[in-house]
Amino acid sequence: MSDSDKGPAPSLKPVTVSLPSDVNYLDVARNFVSDIGHKVGLSAAEIHDLQLAVTEAVTNVIEHAYAGDTEQRIDLAIERDGECFVVAITDTGQNRFDPAAHPDPDLKEYLSQCRVGGLGLYLMRKLMDQVEFTSDARGVNQVKLVKHIKP
């Protein structure tokens, strides 16, 4: 089928999954993104970028928001809003993430000092068109990853 025969992009009703706050489920998160990505016709490169950004976001939640507590939950919600593919990652960890406290690193300096860690947020910003962090009064934190999908 040629591109001109594809017609309108498949629509997507919101899909959610709830995972334990445990790195043993990182691959489940990636598979979830891949399954839904394929369903709406994303390219392999787009799916990889989303898988990497989601892996970084979920890892951050586990290690920082929940400080390694594996008994908590992380919710992933995916939807397609027009040409935007959106993955929302929600937690109730006590350590709220402040993106303003994490400016992009100077990579040259970072590499010259052989530093380790702290590149997850930078990767998310590089891979996605939009990365938004919110926290509400009930203690619910969310990072929203938005990728503009090529028609």
């Binding site: 990889h48 892996t55 970084e56 890892t59 052989c114 530093r115 380790v116 860690g117 590149l119």
Partner: peptide, 16 residues
């Protein structure tokens, strides 16, 4: 087929 930043961190920790 896939590497996250945690994996790069492991390489970084020994390259020096």
């Amino acid at each position: 087929p896939f590497i996250a930043s945690a994996g790069l961190g492991v390489l970084m920790s020994v390259i020096g």
